[in-house]
Simulated scan of single mutants.
Amino acid sequence: MKHMDTDEKRLLSLERACGDLRRGHPVVVCDSSGKSLLVLPAEHANTATLGFFDGLASESFILLTSNRALTLKVASKGWSVVRIARPQWMQANDIVALADPTLDLATPMKGPFQRLEHKETDLDKAAIKLAKWAHLLPAVVAAEIADAKALVSKHGLLEVFAPDVLAADMTQASALKEVASARVPLAGSENTRLVSFRPQTGGVEHIAIVIGEPSRRTPPLMRIHSECFTGDLLGSLKCDCGEQLRGAIRAIDAAGGGVLLYLAQEGRGIGLISKLKAYALQDQGYDTVDANTRLGFDVDERIFAPAAEMLKLLGFTSVRLMTNNPNKVEGLERYGIKVVERVAHAFPPNPHNEMYLATKKIKTGHIL
């Protein structure tokens, strides 16, 4: 059996912890000073999960992002994460509603909530980051615990370390390796090869679509495309993702070859379920940016280190980037890929995505 290095072991622990959180099972987050938090995803709060959690910790609180706290009329004092008191009246359904803004109309009489005067720590930020990594809403029930080792041992809980959680994006990107490659003719380009990349710990896969035979001596035309189940596969009219994907393949083929990176970053990095919740909020009148922040996320949760690493592994150090998002240009260059040209890539709006495209132009700086 292959011996795992420290980074691999840490990422493996994070992947396992995410699995437990997604099942509604608490995990322990520790820091180097010996402080620890027991955390449970707020959206999984019910009689059974809270009963188990409360049997392990005497006092607990709710940990939210500043974006979600603002929606609940709780000032964040400039902190990125905020601790909210958990009074006796707060039952499981109240905690779920606290975390999930799609329930705001059904449960309008929430609060008032009391912010705990506790300046954010890396431990708090890691607890929220772990929930995001598990593709859950960024809100947890949390409790400070004194003897984490005993709790972990007695109840079989998983333990992760805050520095590992906060560095996980970069650690995982640097651990990407090519795992499979095959010729797959596509409708927009028959001379196409799919190359899959996976972190050594077995995390989520990203795919490079290599079109034609792009030269490594000159910057190829390429696009970073974040997966969009609704747009790419189902042909959703709420976005322009499907048109961008298929249009990019055709354009790269017409240019004589290049690369399209298909990244597992659904919903600008918040995951498919949270994206559907954002769509539900859009049905209530919120735009795409406000929907994400109301859920507690940042406007865009993506980083482009995986894209840069994939390009390097494929032998490219400079590119002509097909995008309307200046953040992608900056994101690639931050991680060592030179963007010699930004190539426009836009499609006409339809009645269902006009507001979406207008919001991207006005609020996120897209060049449309």
Score class of each variant (00 low, 15 high):
Lys328Thr: 11
Gly296Ser: 11
Arg302Ser: 08
Phe316Ile: 00
Glu330Ala: 15
Asp290Lys: 04
Ala305Met: 15
Asn324Gly: 06
Ala308His: 14
Leu281His: 09
Ala291Leu: 04
Ala280Gly: 09
Phe316Ala: 02
Asp298Met: 11
Ser318Ile: 00
Leu313Ala: 14
Leu311Glu: 09
Glu330Gln: 11
Thr323Met: 01
Ile303Tyr: 08
Ala280Phe: 06
Gly296Arg: 09
Val289Ala: 08
Thr293Ser: 07
Lys277Val: 00
Arg294Asp: 04
Asn324Ile: 01
Lys275Pro: 06
Arg302Val: 10
Asn292Gln: 06
Asn325Gln: 09
Lys277Met: 13
Leu313Arg: 15
Ala278Val: 01
Leu311Met: 15
Arg320His: 00
Thr317Gln: 10
Leu281Asp: 11
Ser274Phe: 01
Val329Lys: 09
Tyr286Thr: 00
Val299Leu: 09
Leu313Tyr: 01
Thr288Tyr: 01
Phe304Trp: 15
Arg294Glu: 03
Ile303Arg: 13
Met322Pro: 03
Pro306Phe: 13
Leu321Val: 04
Leu281Ala: 10
Lys312Val: 02
Thr293Tyr: 05
Leu295Ala: 10
Phe316Leu: 04
Asp290His: 04
Phe297Ala: 02
Tyr286Met: 13
Phe304Met: 14
Asp290Gly: 01
Ala291Lys: 03
Pro306Lys: 11
Ala291Ser: 15
Val329Trp: 02
Gln284Ile: 03
Asp290Ala: 11
Ala308Pro: 08
Pro306His: 13
Phe316Arg: 01
Leu321Thr: 05
Thr323Ala: 02
Ala307Asp: 05
Asp283Trp: 10
Arg320Ser: 00
Val289Ile: 13
Leu295Arg: 11
Gly315Trp: 07
Asp287Gln: 04
Glu330Pro: 00
Thr288Gly: 11
Asp298Gln: 12
Leu314Tyr: 05
Glu330Cys: 04
Asp287Gly: 03
Ala307Tyr: 07
Glu301Tyr: 01
Thr293Val: 15
Lys328Gln: 10
Ala305Ile: 14
Gly296Cys: 09
Lys312Pro: 01
Arg294Cys: 07
Glu301Gly: 06
